[in-house]
Design a protein around this nucleic acid. Structure first.
Lengths: 215, 215
DNA sequence: TAGATTGTTAATCGATTAACAATC
DNA sequence: TAGATTGTTAATCGATTAACAATC
């Protein structure tokens, strides 16, 4: 007999804020696991991250995990539940458009790779870069995109071009069948049809730091 | 006689979400200005960004701008108001800790420079990099930090080290007098005392893209 | 057992959205 | 003028937090 009814909120209905916190919990769990622990409480996770325990418990409940009062959660199970919830247990094929310094930094970002973000190809208009390979990813001219993706579709396009090229890059990827976009430029682009766009917009962080003062 | 009472919300009390949107408005305004326009309506800004007009008007009101019904806002004035509100009309001295690819990408990020983020020094433990200059910024060993900042204090420390070095980097900067931290690692660090920490956490964007589907 | 922790329901809080008078 | 747009007050919505019974 289950201890609690499984809330079973649609994965797609969980708030953005919660989705952004789940990777933090995962990180704490992995760390605890690497320390040889096998159980962890919501209270403990909250402390590590400076959050409220009730928020952690609430967020975790969306993954379908069931903890034991007084004991906490089984680490191995919790890690697995979060990864499954985030769909990080399957591959997410992607392309990178714009192999500047930021793009190269993303290619080298091990944490993304570890969680199955799988960059298949990179694209750049710089003739110097085309034909080269960075972090095992080959760089092509954007004109090649449609054919390459026709052979093997991808889920996500990472847009790391200069600002002025963002819209064209997104449109090109859209026309090649991509429907999810991770935008690292400061420009917002528009695409007709159903898409998911996540704008990373580094300038926002700067605006917060400029205005906020230590309390 | 003023048309409306100035709400005069404390800069520090404006929501994080609003603070993150203001740079977007600024960008739209600057673009419109470069097209030779001199007026812009909240409706227009909202359209460009795919937001609600009422939200734009509300956000803009925090900057103290007053628009004219039927006309909109004077572009020049609005740009100036947003920049002043964000404190981007003055210099924000900063240091960069960790000159990897991500750190280098940040140094080359013109938009930050344009809005007065002023990286005075960079730090890295790689002997290959120490003594070199990137984008006009000299790279030092972290041991130099305290002395350098004693000569000229900085406001913000940008942490772009490998994850495992994040806490040490932050502590070092804290001890050198820095109280605002822009964290690009996936680790959350802890500092005693009053500080502002903005966690950029790229992995969060990936979690959102992994779960969300085009509606 | 006593006390810590879970999961759920209810209350609070804050941000977004709606409504609308003022006005250019 | 008529109609678009502003600024403000009120309503709605959703996320966070509080309260608390269940339980190991």
């Amino acid at each position: 007999m289950p201890r609690g009814k499984v809330v079973n909120v649609e994965r797609t209905k969980v708030s953005l804020a919660c989705l952004r916190r789940l990777p933090l919990y995962l990180d704490v769990c992995r760390h605890a696991e690497s320390e040889g622990e096998s159980l962890i409480s919501g209270t403990r996770i909250a402390e590590e991250l400076g959050l409220e325990a009730i928020q952690v418990r609430k967020d975790l409940s969306f993954t379908g995990i069931l903890g034991r009062p007084r004991i906490g959660y089984v680490l191995k199970e919790l890690i697995q539940k979060i990864e499954t919830f985030l769909q990080w247990d399957r591959s997410h094929p992607a392309i990178l458009i714009g192999v500047g310094r930021l793009g190269q930094a993303l290619l080298g970002y091990q944490q993304l790779r570890r969680y199955n973000l799988n960059v298949l190809h990179a694209f750049d208009i710089d003739a110097e870069k085309i034909g080269k390979t960075i972090e095992g990813v080959s760089i092509y001219h954007p004109a090649m995109m449609k054919d390459l993706l026709a052979q093997q579709p991808v889920e996500i396009a990472i847009i790391a071009t200069p600002d002025h090229a963002a819209q064209d890059a997104a449109t090109l990827a859209y026309n090649a069948g991509v429907r999810k976009f991770w935008n690292f430029t400061t420009k917002r682009f528009r695409l007709q049809g159903k898409v998911v766009i996540y704008n990373e917009s580094l300038i926002s962080g700067y605006s917060v730091l400029s205005v906020r003062s230590p309390t």
